[in-house]
Design a protein around this nucleic acid. Structure first.
Lengths: 102, 102
DNA sequence: GTATTATATCAATATCTGTTGATATACTTT
DNA sequence: AAAGTATATCAACAGATATTGATATAATAC
């Protein structure tokens, strides 16, 4: 039986799991839209959710999911909370994905 | 209110949905593993499932999901069914993903 | 023909994840 | 202090998706 790296090697297997976690987060239409919206720069929640045809609280929830995985960062400014891409991490995850599939 | 392409433009919005469909399929640990295994060339199901610690029928099911989206192709050879990457399509989908996030 | 092997299918279940509505927090304005 | 605005949180529900066990199909070997 030949050894297959992504199945037998623990380090690679762990990397694969992390990549899958990343994919699970971005494989949702509204979250992908949020990431696209944020490509043009930081936005507060009130600028994001009307574009998505989503409720405010659901948008907030998706943002928190993205933040938990480090794909976006946020900073409070008065009443508003501005979200922006954590582009370094996002690009890193895309590169890891490529390593598995290219 | 500024227009945001991935939300307002129908064509781009459709592309985004297709990309999300692709992501949903590959955001599963075992399916990602299958794709990795197939990078080293065509394999029959009986060579794949023992590597995955999955049952035969579940492996078969995941393969059918991958095939349905055109990420793998299969050909029967006697009793065995050999699966191989549909690499052209896989790479195309990765490029589309990059278009949205890079 | 029967037995055996490889693969696929199906219904039932379990698990996960998005959504909703209500409410809480936190800041600003008056 | 009270009212209003922006955001977050929570429990409950709904829908989707992975898993399981049993069984079906299809090709080969005897």
């Amino acid at each position: 039986m030949p050894k297959i790296k992504c199945c037998s090697n623990k380090k690679i297997s762990n990397e694969l799991k992390k990549t899958v976690d990343f994919l699970k987060i971005i494989s949702e239409e509204n979250r992908m839209r949020i990431l696209c919206i944020l490509k043009s720069g930081p936005k507060c929640v009130c600028e994001i959710w009307p574009n998505l045809d989503l409720s405010q609280n659901l948008t907030s929830h998706h943002l928190s999911v993205l933040k938990e995985l480090g794909l976006v960062k946020s900073k409070k400014q008065g009443l508003k909370v501005f979200y922006e891409l954590n582009d370094k991490n996002l690009q890193k995850q895309l590169i890891n994905l490529d390593l598995f599939l290219k």
